[in-house]
């Protein structure tokens, strides 16, 4: 390979390095909404220690973050805000929809909730559960890392 197409090899390597860098320094925006946010906070603190994956720094400003963990139910009043925060995030950016409510509206199929945050922003990973335990969220995050590294979700 290297002898036949050196340029190609170089490109792949940089791409890989870039992907690796992306996964290893992901800054989540703190977008806690409801019960799931408490589990997200628990994931970030000492017992579960999200810093093992280089992402314990929850950024307050969307401008400094590249992952949005939508943790909790999204109401009709919150949806425009959510979209604005998403738009303010610099590319490349990813979204994890955490919990039944963010993914589908959960048990609240009524006038007040957006039935799934994917109606407002594109979602990469759905983490099921009500609330998903910190382990589930970590699995979601690792799956996202896989997705970024391989361009697809590894089985």
């Amino acid at each position: 390979m290297a002898t036949t197409a050196p340029g190609n090899l170089l490109m792949t390597t940089i791409d890989k390095a870039a992907r690796w860098a992306k996964t290893r320094s992901m800054f989540p925006a703190s977008f806690g909404l409801a019960c799931c946010a408490i589990e997200m906070m628990a994931t970030g603190t000492a017992h579960y220690d999200l810093s093992r994956f280089g992402m314990e720094v929850f950024r307050a400003s969307p401008r400094q973050s590249d992952l949005m963990v939508v943790a909790g139910r999204v109401s009709q009043k919150m949806a425009p805000v959510l979209r604005q925060v998403y738009d303010q995030m610099p590319d490349p950016k990813w979204v994890i929809s955490m919990g039944a409510c963010a993914s589908t509206g959960g048990m609240f199929n009524n006038y007040a909730l957006v039935q799934g945050v994917d109606q407002v922003v594109p979602v990469d990973i759905y983490v099921p559960g009500c609330p998903p335990g910190p382990q589930s969220l970590m699995h979601g995050i690792l799956t996202l890392h896989d997705k970024i590294m391989n361009g697809e979700i590894a089985s």
């Binding site: 589908t104 509206g105 199929n109 009524n110 006038y111 007040a112 039935q115």
Partner: peptide, 9 residues
């Protein structure tokens, strides 16, 4: 008389 507003799933 205000509906629940549920969307069919």
């Amino acid at each position: 008389d205000f509906g629940v507003g549920a969307v069919p799933v």
